[in-house]
């Protein structure tokens, strides 16, 4: 006998609720699982059942480079987001009343603002005679207009702008749960601020950091709009090349192979993050 007894109330109307499943299950199967499967299958079966598409992606040519660049820029954007968001979130988490509402309102509004529009805004700001260049010249930081568009810098700034809310929201949520009496207790016990931060605040905020980092990194990997507008022509990310191979060159097998790699990357990080977050939660409970 494996064991006896269960949680206090095992009451359900389970069987009735299971009857609701066929519709969403069918929808997901036809319009989500099958299409994804189709991408994966096409990458190995088309035009011939072998790995030639992957050989093409990973061999000479621009594709492997683009994939690496995509990971690099995703990592860069994630790092900048974390460095920027951490202090801002820590300050926001301490706020109360109106100030807190204004800050969260701004962040949420920013999250809901169209990525196309926000990237378009940066496109205008970064133009040869745009606001940023005017400012640089006025401040004497540049003698003549600098080329900002089509650089990694422009892409990174635009992506950080779009993705900051994804880092801020989990951070603020976690930091607001940190018990301020812990910090005060630490002060009373004589811990120096730096030690207090490293030993108490940082470990307690780690679940939020993990969630934010995973969210931003995964979302960055699939970015299309911002790098197209701000880096177009010179800097190419994975989603852009997939769209281009499929839409312009009609090389669907190749697009499928790149998409499959991107899919695998996303899923692996997602699963790893899930495990990581659980570890963090159990550790913080100890």
């Amino acid at each position: 006998m494996a064991g006896i007894g269960r949680a206090a109330k095992p009451w359900t109307l389970g069987r009735g609720y299971l009857l609701l499943l066929p519709l969403p299950c069918g929808f997901l199967a036809v319009f989500f699982v099958w299409p994804l499967l189709r991408v994966v299958l096409r990458s190995v079966l088309d035009p011939r059942p072998n790995f030639s598409n992957y050989a093409k992606v990973l061999g000479a040519g621009p594709y492997a480079h683009i994939l690496l660049y995509t990971i690099e820029i995703a990592a860069l954007v994630t790092a900048i987001c974390l460095l920027l968001a951490y202090p801002v979130a820590a300050l926001t988490a301490r706020m109360r009343g109106g100030a807190l509402q204004v800050m969260t309102g701004l962040i949420v509004a920013s999250l809901w603002t169209s990525a196309v529009i926000r990237s378009y805004a940066w496109l205008i700001l970064f133009q040869r005679y745009g606001v940023v260049n005017q400012a640089l010249i006025a401040l004497g930081l540049a003698g003549a207009p600098v080329r900002i568009l089509q650089t990694t810098t422009a892409v990174a700034i635009g992506m950080v702008h779009v993705l900051l809310p994804f880092m801020l929201l989990p951070l603020i949520a976690t930091m607001r749960r940190i018990d301020p009496t812990l910090l005060r207790a630490g002060r009373i016990l004589g811990a120096a601020p730096v030690r207090l931060f490293l030993r108490v605040y940082l470990p307690l905020s780690l679940p939020g950091v993990n969630a934010g980092v995973a969210l931003v990194f995964i979302t960055s990997l699939g970015f299309f709009i911002t790098p197209s507008l701000l880096g177009g022509g010179r800097t190419t990310m994975a989603a852009m090349i997939i769209e281009e191979e499929a839409d312009t060159y009609l090389d669907w097998p190749l697009a499928s192979a790149i998409a499959t790699i991107l899919l695998a990357l996303t899923v692996v990080i997602y699963l790893a993050y899930g495990r990581l977050a659980r570890v963090e939660v159990t550790r913080s409970l100890r």
């Binding site: 006896i4 007894g5 269960r6 949680a7 206090a8 109330k9 095992p10 009451w11 359900t12 109307l13």
Partner: peptide
């Protein structure tokens, strides 16, 4: 708790 009394009641109510 876990002695089965709620389970027994649940079978009368129709929840189990």
């Amino acid at each position: 708790s876990g002695s089965g009394k709620s389970t027994l009641l649940g079978t009368v109510a129709g929840f189990i």
